[in-house]
């Protein structure tokens, strides 16, 4: 698992600022108490003035395969309540609900690859795309291991959850967790949320839900831990989450080295064969028949 973090220009902060830096904040989402009401989705859209899916709301698109019509996170939908419908038999099955959002990774792949410096880490340890800097190159979309980022069709820039930076910076709770009627989405300092999440997982296991575990809560885990982590009761893939998310830079050194060796080899081969040809021409030109 790649836990190495490359330097980030926009992360440079002074020692004084570091001393007064607020504690990292994020979300703990307990999927076992999500009721799929989508209040978080609506609150997010309302607060952040996001357009409806598809053609901007002129026509409401239905998925036709589920009660879930949002279907995916995108530049226009920063919260998405997934409906995982597990019905192997007509009268036997369960629904898993999960309110998905940007994970605000401690080692953020999107921030790593962004070529314009539009993606920054805030004082709350969250990851924000500056819409006035982003030019829509879409490198971050392919780099995100969770498929979180998309192009917003109003701003024509890459966008995703800001963890309501405009609210948290003035001491308010993000719109989604504020609207959640069951406290499935909980907001707060990461250290407190981890303690609360671990206690909840233990409680569920004691009550017989032995599959309960935390996804992304381990600071020594993938991407240095996620500042938005989850309590799940099935395999990560069932929730559409990668089992082993990685930093995109894992391929940079090896790929560059292999290409550089091949490039050097071809340049040297070209130079040597051309030089050989020139020497041959000179030798032919200096033979007696040519001299005469």
């Amino acid at each position: 698992m790649g836990t190495r973090m490359l330097p980030i220009v926009s992360q440079a902060v002074s020692p004084a600022a570091l001393a007064s830096k607020p504690e990292p904040t994020g979300f703990f989402t307990d999927t076992t108490i999500c009721i799929g009401c989508k209040a978080c989705e609506v609150a997010c859209k309302e607060w952040n003035q996001l357009p409806a899916r598809g053609d901007g709301g002129a026509h409401l698109e239905m998925s036709g395969q589920s009660y879930d019509n949002t279907l995916e996170l995108s530049g226009d939908s920063w919260r998405h309540v997934k409906f995982i419908e597990q019905f192997p038999e007509p009268y036997e099955g369960r629904w898993l609900m999960m309110s998905d959002v940007c994970k605000h990774c401690v080692q953020a792949p999107c921030l790593e690859v962004c070529p314009t410096g539009a993606i920054i880490r805030t004082e709350f340890d969250t990851v924000v795309i500056q819409s006035d800097t982003c030019n829509g190159c879409r490198d971050c979309i392919g780099a995100c291991p969770f498929g979180v980022i998309g192009i917003n069709h109003v701003s024509n820039t890459a966008q995703k959850c800001t963890l309501c930076y405009d609210r948290t910076s003035v001491g308010l709770e993000p719109a989604c967790s504020k609207a959640c009627p069951t406290d499935s989405i909980q907001f707060g300092p990461i250290s407190e949320l981890r303690v609360r999440a671990e206690a909840r997982a233990v409680q569920l296991r004691e009550q017989g839900e032995t599959r309960a575990y935390l996804y992304g809560a381990d600071p020594n885990g993938p991407l240095g831990g996620l500042n938005s982590f989850y309590l799940l009761v099935d395999e990560p893939e069932v929730y559409g989450l990668p089992r082993d998310p990685k930093l995109p830079s894992r391929n940079l050194a090896k790929g560059s080295l292999l290409s550089s060796i091949a490039a050097f080899g071809m340049a040297v081969a070209g130079a040597l064969t051309l030089r050989g040809r020139r020497m041959k021409e000179v030798a032919e030109a200096s033979t007696p028949e040519h001299v005469s």
């Binding site: 690859v113 392919g142 990685k246 995109p248 830079s249 894992r250 940079l252 790929g255 292999l258 091949a262």
Partner: peptide, 22 residues
């Protein structure tokens, strides 16, 4: 050669599953 490395430096299927694309 860089274009192959650019694709490898993502998390997408095929592109980032190999270092040979460059």
């Amino acid at each position: 050669g860089y274009t192959g490395v650019l694709l490898a430096e993502t998390n997408r299927p095929i592109w980032s599953d190999s270092s040979w694309l460059g």
